[in-house]
Amino acid sequence: MALSVELGDEISVETNTRVRALEFLIQQKGLEGVVETVPSFRSLLVYYDPGRVGYETLCAALGALAEQASTAVLPPARLVELPCCYDPELGPDLEAAAQRLGMTPDELIRLHSSAEYLVYFVGFTPGLPYMAGVPERIQLPRLTTPRVKVPAGSVGLGGAQFCIYSVDSPGGYWLLGRTPVRLYDPESVEPTLLRAGDRVRMRPVDRAEYDAILARVEARVYRPVIA
């Protein structure tokens, strides 16, 4: 059984921070009967065992914790640096996106890679981060016709959202480049890399470095920089 705690209506860093803070408080308190939690933009889905906690009791406990849920309670965020290659072969929409934004591809790359992004939550497919922090100057509406297949690692822009595809899947975001790092690796002991609340930066790499990192990723000897 599950119940959804809604902390706002909109997509904002402030609301999402309260969602993550509520999840953190639930983990810290070890709230009786809670089985698992799923944060998203503005709400927290709480799976619970009704054999261990009553619906009314849980609602009251969550309501009380929601009052305390603010940035102050969260531990410091991790900073994850991901290499990103903006080669046109790996980022087929870079040129068109830059043209539409009235800037050069280099300017788009500079703006995209100098921003710091916040992982609102990870979901939809395994390890896929929904991220905030796209500079206003590079925000674009989504593609009118989504692609049937976007390769894993593709770095995509859509509106104020930024995502990195974690598995090959359909997608409607503008593809600017690709990271050789695997956000989801089912053969790893910890299959997913990013977590809600992480801060992410993209480090531009050329094709040669991309290929070198990819080879190390495939040999399972590459570790991304996490501070």
Partner: peptide
């Protein structure tokens, strides 16, 4: 498996 929906699993 329990506890991994928050990672999309």
């Amino acid at each position: 498996r329990v506890g991994h929906l928050r990672s999309g699993i």
